[in-house]
Design a protein around this nucleic acid. Sequence first.
DNA 1: ACATTTATTTAGCGTTCACTACAAAATATG
DNA 2: CATATTTTGTAGTGAACGCTAAATAAATGT
Lengths: 201, 201
Amino acid sequence: MAGQLTKRVGRPRAFDRDKALDRAMHIFWKRGFEGASLSELTGAMGIKPASLYAAFGNKQALFDQALTRYLAGPVASMHAALEQPTAYGVAERILHQTAEFLTERRARHGCMTIQAALTGGNESRPVRRKLIGLRVREQDALRRRFERAKSEGDLPKHADAADLARFITAVFQGMTVQAIDGASRDDLVHLADMAMRAWPK
Amino acid sequence: MAGQLTKRVGRPRAFDRDKALDRAMHIFWKRGFEGASLSELTGAMGIKPASLYAAFGNKQALFDQALTRYLAGPVASMHAALEQPTAYGVAERILHQTAEFLTERRARHGCMTIQAALTGGNESRPVRRKLIGLRVREQDALRRRFERAKSEGDLPKHADAADLARFITAVFQGMTVQAIDGASRDDLVHLADMAMRAWPK
DNA sequence: ACATTTATTTAGCGTTCACTACAAAATATG
DNA sequence: CATATTTTGTAGTGAACGCTAAATAAATGT
C-alpha cells in the first residue's frame, strides 16, 4: 500500500490537501453547492482549477469529500450525544449543542446538511438526494435511540419514539434557520429549553 | 388612471400576465431563486425572454412579484391565524395549517420564504436579505400578538412572548425541512401537537 | 390611409459556468 | 545522465447563464 510517508514518484503536490479541503468545506457551507463557484473555491483553496481536478475529481466529488469532513468534524459531537444515559439527556444535549454550534463564529451560517442544497436546478439533484438521505438517517438513529429508551423504561409506554425523534430534529432544523436570521446564543438556548418542556412524562 | 378594462393602445399582450406569474411563482418555489433558470421560467410561462422582460422587468423583479403573489395567496391564511381569540389558539392554528399546507400536492416542496434562498452566490444576496427580513417581520408579528395576549391575561406573566414566537416559528421552519424530507401529513400533525405540549401554563 | 404605440419573434450579446488540453516544472528511478 | 511520473500554470473549451437590439406584427388614434 502506498502510505503517506513513502515518497511517491513525480512532482510533489505543492499544497496541503487537507487544508485545501477544509477551505472548500467552508465555502460550500456558506454558499451551498450551486452557490459555490469554482473560481471562488479555487481562490479560497489557493490552487488552480487543474490542481483541484487532479486532486479531488470534480465539483461534486469535492463536495462529497467536504461533506464527509463536515460530518466527521462539526457533526461528530452531535452524534456522540446519543450516548447520554437518558433519552431526555440525549435530546437536551443535542439541542444545547446545536445552540452553541450555530452561534460559533465560523458557523454563523447554519448547518451544512440543510443549507447546502434545499432547492436548486437539476444539476444539483444528486446532492439534494444525498443530503435528504443523510438527514433521514440521522433522524432514524435518534428514533432508534428513543426506542431503546422505551424498552429500558426510560420513556413512558405511551411515548412515540418516531414522533419524538421528528420533533427534536425539526426543532434542530428550525434552529438553523433562526441562526441564519440572526438569533443569538441565548435566543437559541431559550428555544431549546422551551422545546424540552414538550417532553412526555 | 389606466384601468384594466380600458383598451390600451398598441399590440395587446398575447398571454395572461397573472397566469404567467403564477407559473413563475411555482418554479421559484420549487427551484429557489438561483436554481430557477430563465429558460425554465420562460418555458413554464409559455413566453419568450423578451416578453418576460417587457412585462416583469428582470429576474429579480419577477421574483419579487412572484413572492408578493405567494404571500398574498398561500401565506395569507397563515397571517389570518393571528386573529384567533387566544394565544394558544393562534399557535395551534398556525402549526396545523402548516401541516396541511406543506402536504398539499402543489406545495410538496416546502415554504418559499425559506427555500427560495437560504444560501447562494453574491448575485442572490439581495434576495436572501429580503427573505430574512420577511421571516423576521413575520416572527415579530407573532411576538406582538403574544404580548397582547399577556396584557389580556391570556398568557401567564412568566411567559416570554419573544421566546414563544421564536419557538413556534422555529417549529414551523423545521416542518418545512421535514416536508422536503418526505414527512406525511400525519407526521406533521403529530409534530404540531407535540410542540403545543410545551405551551406555558 | 397612415402614424403611433406596444408586443412578439428572431437572433444573438457578453459573461460566467464547470471543466480540460498542453507543455513546462519538479520529483523519483535506472 | 536519461527516462518515467506526477503536478503545475497557462490558456483556453463548449455550454448555459441573464439579458437585449432590431425587425416584424397587431392593436389604437387621427
